[in-house]
Design a binder for these strands. Structure first.
Length: 277
DNA sequence: TTCCAGGAGGGGG
DNA sequence: CCCCCTCATGGA
């Protein structure tokens, strides 16, 4: 059971929920682990994830927000059961047991995954941390993610200063375009492919970054981000190399409308060195 | 020191 | 459509 209180969320052990699998699977970058407990920040809200006697407790001032954020309305046991018989799932799902795909803010996800391109996860986290510290609202013990307006007002040299590298001009361009009216919120009429093409009009958003945004920001599960780790999975799976576009089509056909979940189980297992293929 | 990272943009064939 | 090159940064 999942119970929302006025100080947080109580989760018992019957619910699929494992912090390591949720935070270390590359879908989010604003989290910290200390003393075995994770803390996470999304938008201008923070939550602490603590082990309780028969499950986990999420302590936060925004329980309703994090109930949606952690996707508690989705039955992950049912998803795992449906995926179980498909390729490589019997090897990767047990390792990723307790993973959940977060429902993150659109703008925050777009910016975060532009930064993620051709970058290491620890460095992505550092760039985003500095971005929030410099442009985000001071919330006392942490900083909020910057508003569109704050990011649009900063110029390219600012993004170079915080270590964004050649992605600096992508960030300033995209923030300005969204501030100027490019709609990233009213998109329910778009199909997944239409939304991908829409997002790819933004500088720094290519096919793979768009797929990550679709998955982690828009909960479009019928897509399959192909990065270097998934290319390794595919190489071991089919014993050949192909373009990311072909790999994406192949794996989407294979996992269907559960592609996003399958992709995360595979990514997490492969990157952790637990998928021997 | 070279290689690599949750790749994208731009050019050319 | 395809392939090829370049791009900034820091950790391994």
């Amino acid at each position: 059971m999942v119970k929302v209180t006025d100080t947080g969320i109580l989760i018992d052990d019957e619910v699929k929920f494992r912090p390591h699998a949720i935070f270390e699977c590359g879908q989010i970058f604003r989290y910290e682990m200390s003393g075995g407990n994770y803390s996470v920040i999304s938008e201008d809200k923070r939550a602490e994830v603590c082990r309780s006697e028969n499950g986990y407790e999420i302590r936060t001032d925004a329980p309703e927000y994090f109930y949606n954020f952690f996707d508690f309305d989705t039955d992950y046991q049912a998803i795992m059961s449906e995926l179980e018989g498909k390729a490589l799932m019997s090897e990767s799902i047990p390792f990723g047991d307790g993973m959940r795909i977060l429902r993150q803010n659109h703008f925050e996800t777009i910016i975060s995954f532009i930064i993620s391109a051709n970058n290491h996860i620890p460095r992505i986290k550092g760039i985003i941390r500095r971005l929030c510290a410099r442009l985000g609202k001071d919330c006392g013990t942490y900083y909020a993610f910057p508003t569109v307006e704050a990011m649009a007002a900063a110029d390219t040299s600012f993004y170079t200063e915080i270590g964004a590298g050649y992605r600096a001009e992508y960030l300033s361009s995209t923030a300005r375009r969204i501030a100027d009216g490019f709609d990233i919120d009213n998109v329910s009429a778009y199909s997944t492919e239409e939304l991908a093409r829409h997002l790819m009009q933004l500088k720094g958003v290519g096919a793979k970054v768009a797929d990550c945004i679709l998955l982690f920001g828009y909960s479009r599960m019928d897509t399959f981000p192909v990065d270097t780790w998934i290319k390794k999975v595919y190489g071991g799976m089919c014993n050949r190399e192909d373009s990311a576009c072909k790999i994406r089509k192949y794996l989407r056909d294979l996992y269907g409308n559960l592609s996003g979940y399958a992709q995360q189980y595979l990514f997490y297992a492969m990157r952790s060195g637990m998928l021997k293929i």
